[in-house]
Write a protein that binds this DNA or RNA. Sequence first.
RNA 1: GCCCGGAUGGCGGAAUCGGCAGACGCGGAGGACUCAAAAUCCUUUGCCUUAAUCGGCGUGUGGGUUCGAGUCCCACUCCGGGCACCA
Length: 817
Amino acid sequence: MARAFRVTEIESKWQAFWLENGTYEVDNDDPRPSFYALCMYPYPSGSAHQGHVRNYTFGDLNVRYQTMKGFAVLSPFGFDSFGLPAENAAIKTGRHPREFTDERIEELRASVRKLGAVYDWRREVRSHDPRYIRWSQAIFLKFYEAGLVYRKMAPVNWCPGCTTVLANEQVLADGTCDRSGDIVEKRDLEQWFFRITAYADELLAMLDDLEWPERVKTMQRNWIGRSEGAELTLKVEGHDDLGIEVFTTRPDTSFGMTYAVLAPEHPLVEAITTAQCRSAVDALRESAAGASEIERTSSDNKTLDKRGAYTGANVINPFTGQAIPVYVADYVLMGYGTGAIMAVPAEDERDFAFATTYGLPIIRTTEPKGGLPADFEGAYTGSGIKVNSGFLDGLSVPVAKSKAIAWLESEGIGRGTVNYRLRDWLVSRQRFWGCPIPIVYCDTCGALPVPDDQLPVLAPDDVAFVPSGQSPLATHQGFISTTCPHCGKAARRESDTMDTFVDSSWYFLRFCDPFSDDVPFSPEAVQRWMPVDQYIGGIEHAILHLLYARFFTKALIDVGFAPGIEREPFKRLFTQGMIRMDGSKMSKSKGNLVAPTKYYETVGADGLRLFHLFVGPPADDFDWTDQTDQVIDGCARFLDRLWRLAVADVISGSGGKDDEMRRMTHRIIKKVTDDLDRWSYNTAVAGLMELLNATMKARAESELGEDVLNHAVDTLIQLLAPMAPHVTAELWEMRHGTHVHEQEWPTYDPDLVTEDTVTMVVQVNGKVKTKFEVAADISDDAAIALALGDEAIMSELGGREPSRVIARPPKLVNIVR
RNA sequence: GCCCGGAUGGCGGAAUCGGCAGACGCGGAGGACUCAAAAUCCUUUGCCUUAAUCGGCGUGUGGGUUCGAGUCCCACUCCGGGCACCA
């Protein structure tokens, strides 16, 4: 389409201007009140795609809007530059991941600039920068010192075909390798963990006060998975020294415990299994170990028999004194609770299914009001009154719970406890392109931290990326060989690197002070800017990134790196919708990208940005269709119309519509301001379109005086400035010789935002019969009198008295016949 | 299975506190300008009925509360997402 102005020329002019003048650079001692606006740390995947465009359009709107409202806005940008794609590319092409990554960073940086998004580029942070690595490692060691980091054996995904460790996302749903198709195995390795579970309670409790989407908070709550219950010990018959610790959320059902189950990996299985049962138990343990996690927790579990085996041992149910059998079954997981359960088939669906298959007894201990229906099948998990439960009989479920716990505690058998689904965070990655874990292993002194003055530990450059399936670090003697910092003897370095989620867990703090080299960030700087006032990103980070970053912030405060800042890093979170095409997410791997580049020449960054703002609620997913280009053209058309109006000669008309236009202008200032504050960008744009349409029409009719016309046009330009920054900067400069983004955000006169006359609807039995133009402050009585005096209404009533009249002036009068 | 979110014209969507459903845009129809086209501008556009009005219907389905329901309550259908043997 032919445009009213030279899009590319104007856009590159202003992009250069903002960059060269440092318009959006902000110093830590800026006297204005602060506002920290942040988009999620992007992986540099090359040129920005539509998802980036959407994200940075929202982010940039916030930056420019809050600046116009008088805040010192911290708007930094950086790159989450470690990660698998660069390493895979290296293996494919033989090039060093750094080269590959640096190129992608250049591309992404160039394309966010082309979008007109503005940042304080002096603060740029890159995960693979030695200055950043140094502090990621220092933080790791500080956490180690504080007991928040530890090492233990844990299984990894091992692909025998590639002879390498796989990330979870490289394992397909059917448990095979996404590259070779081999069945992925579990292998145990010594690996490093962050003790995030130490913060489970706080991570859960502090969610309540965050201004985050409920959906995200719910996902985090479920992920943390707090459950209250009891732990108790079941004595093993014939083994006076052995007890099985079990966890239950339903201690009230204990009288219905008819067997117990150990996870296949449970350490006591060995000790209690009898000779006769050994082969069956071993077979089960083997099949459970061979089965991938995916298989074991497969969605088809309803059709799978509960696989288990009797150990030959029995335990005593402490409530009844009865001996009950102990099974091994793969529906019990070693990783949760104690890895062992008391089974109550009457009140737990899984136990019921297992008991039915293995012919175990079922004793009901809970009856709902009115009893269970005679034909009731299965487990009853609802509320009710205890039966068959000795001293708990007649109590409600919650009361019985606390009484059962009290009894366990008084008998010294157990106690009330809390369990979490959340596990500690495994951070070891058997990869090259990540932050090296700064640990040295000495045969005599053990695992030791790398001394602070030797940080950062950097991966060597002279590595060969061959598809051997091993991280080049693990076999690089120059890297691996070192000396023990304690005894000075030969030692070897840890060759694993950290999960890249570590890098993205503290970058927002480094942004506050990326200049310091003696601390990760100065306390004053993070006190100045934290917490992030507006965080913007994709819903795909709802759980992991956001949880890890919350954990890091709390832990960094507690170890003394970030004293005195708020314990929650992200005050407000906005999660934008996905862009989809033909029902699936628009992505490179799907091959359905519509590159933003092609729009820069035609509608420009402004047109594309306006489209992303206008097309629907920012939080909703958007379907890219055949019609989408026409909608984008429509947005460009709006900018053209504004351009023509703003550069045209001012026609000083009659002024007949001055009052109406002035009110509308003020009303739209209020509407756009309110809409921007509540993230309703689509309606804000619609409001601007309304104002433009009305102004053009009144102008064409020569009904506007010069002042009112100019005020309307200037207001349009100002309100649009955060959304379409280039065209508005150009127009404002032409009209005033100054910079629109340095203007104060327009204010409205409260007296002018309400109309002085309003259309009042008169209904009879809820149906609109007539309308009046009335004064906005009309009284109840006057409104009723007006309605009842109307001829059409009188004939509707046919002379009878209405049975009821509801007056809601000035909008409505409803007459009930 | 459990937990969230959603369903409004041909399409994207609006209706912020229970008060004229369909703002704004796309698409469609008609017209102006033009030798013609593009661009631009104007008019029109929920459905049925009608020459037009009048009238009737209408926010996934079925009930309910209310003078009044897209909005609140109950039950359900479908779609999307998260979690998924977590004891």
